[in-house]
């Protein structure tokens, strides 16, 4: 079942002003949501906060209620070895499989380091991407495992 590897990332639109991140973090806190992976992507005057969390649906509704602009983005989380060359191993296998990494960020919230990856090939479904990744010998984290 490839769908169990589909991880729902929250992509939250965030104006680039003091206090914005605190406001967002407060919503996670108030809903008792734990963040397993997180990054901020910034452009001119605004950013997108990306987060993988344990209760994505509940917190999505909480953000919507507060009029945040957000969206789920399907990503995968790949296990990396905690040794020199860990990232190279993952990246080279993605490359060999023809999978384009649009962006990625690392997480240590599971027992091993993982790399959260957004694959942006328009002609490859997430399911097909998951199959290719598994076939390359990499280990993917199940969505359920991210929720520990």
């Amino acid at each position: 079942m490839t769908s169990e590897y589909r991880i729902k990332q929250l992509s939250i639109f965030a104006p680039n002003t003091p206090g914005t991140l605190a406001e967002i973090a407060k919503i996670f806190l108030d809903n008792e949501v734990n963040i397993s992976a997180f990054c901020i992507a910034e452009a001119n005057n605004f950013g997108v906060v990306r987060a993988v969390v344990d209760k994505p649906d509940a917190v999505f509704a909480a953000f919507e209620k507060k009029n945040y602009l957000l969206k789920f983005t399907d990503v995968v989380a790949v296990k990396m070895s905690d040794v020199p060359g860990g990232l190279y191993d993952v990246a080279s296998k993605f490359g060999a499989a023809g999978l384009n990494i649009e962006y990625a960020y690392a997480s240590r919230s599971t027992t091993t380091p993982t790399l959260v990856v957004y694959v942006s090939n328009t002609n490859i479904s997430l399911e097909a991407a998951v199959e290719k990744i598994l076939a390359s010998g990499l280990v993917l984290v199940r969505a359920a495992e991210m929720r520990i």
């Binding site: 639109f13 910034e42 452009a43 001119n44 950013g47 997108v48 957000l70 789920f72 983005t73």
Partner: peptide, 18 residues
């Protein structure tokens, strides 16, 4: 203001829109 229904969640789309 961004049109809520056309927000993709992707930074690159926002930069393009800008």
């Amino acid at each position: 203001e961004i049109n809520k229904h056309l927000f993709s969640g992707e930074l690159s789309d926002l930069a393009r829109l800008q």
